[in-house]
């Protein structure tokens, strides 16, 4: 028997003005699975994740988290969700502990569990000695860790991470990838990235978006079998990187 479905997106569409930024995207996520959402800049990844996390209302289509429809029972659905947006939502003038406790309270963690969850999350994210520091004083790598910590402190069933490794140095990237793999043991994770090899390292399954459309959805083996998709993605990646250089 397959693991229970923790998140399902059905026919998501989102318009920005008259442009369809996301066009009929559907997929499901099982418990204990790490799903990679691949696409180039402007492919609609962030918009899709915003709709999955309930920050943005889809123009049409629906999202269910832990069997709760976000349009009907958003309060219950969102309590099962942890979200790290592209820019971590951190209050620079807060201490790490205060930010994490605030995020936990927002997600309705009971008073009795607050300290336990804070300790556990800081240990997982390597922040044990950083609790009293002001967030604005932390390096980008540590801010990213706090960003992940605020997304997982309430032990959500689904964790959504939008490009969590962008702008980090190689050692930090390795640490964060290890953390994501570890998260995949207890929760379901959706990870957006434009790096194919990142998906190959940490994900079980991949969804590829191009111009807002879902052009591939399947396991990594299936992705490798579709060599045309993989090679075209790599080609486009190389082009983007050379443009950036």
């Amino acid at each position: 028997m397959s693991a229970p479905t923790t998140l399902s997106a059905k026919n998501l569409v989102r318009f920005h003005g008259k442009r369809r930024v996301v066009d009929d995207v559907s997929f499901t996520l099982q418990r204990g699975e790490v799903l990679g959402l691949l696409g180039h800049n402007g492919a609609g990844k962030s918009t899709t994740l915003m709709m999955l996390s309930g920050a943005l209302q889809p123009s049409s289509g629906s999202v269910e988290v832990c069997d709760f429809d976000l349009a009907q029972r958003a309060d219950l659905g969102k309590a099962c969700l942890g979200f790290l947006p592209e820019h971590p939502p951190l209050y620079r003038d807060m201490r790490v502990d205060d930010q994490l406790l605030f995020a936990a309270r927002l997600h309705k963690v009971g008073k009795a569990q607050l300290d336990e969850y804070l300790e556990l999350t800081k240990r997982r994210c390597g922040l044990l000695d950083w609790g009293k520091r002001l967030i604005g004083e932390l390096s980008k790598g540590y801010q990213q860790r706090v960003g992940i910590a605020q997304a997982i402190i309430h032990q959500p069933a689904v964790v959504i991470l939008d490009e969590p490794t962008v702008g980090l140095d190689p050692a930090q990237i390795r640490d964060i990838r290890e953390l994501i793999s570890e998260l995949g043991d207890s929760s379901s994770v959706i990870l957006s990235t434009h790096l194919l090899h990142e998906v190959e390292q940490v994900c079980d399954r991949a969804v590829i978006l191009r111009e807002g459309r879902n052009i591939f959805s399947g396991s990594l083996d299936e992705l490798r079998a579709h060599s045309d998709i993989e090679s075209s993605f790599l080609r486009l990646n190389a082009a983007t990187e050379s443009e950036q250089a």
């Binding site: 309930g54 969102k78 979200f83 971590p88 939502p89 997600h107």
Partner: peptide
Amino acid sequence: RNQTWLLLATSPLS
């Protein structure tokens, strides 16, 4: 502007 709004928008708060 500080991008912290998403923490509130994606929270279970109505």
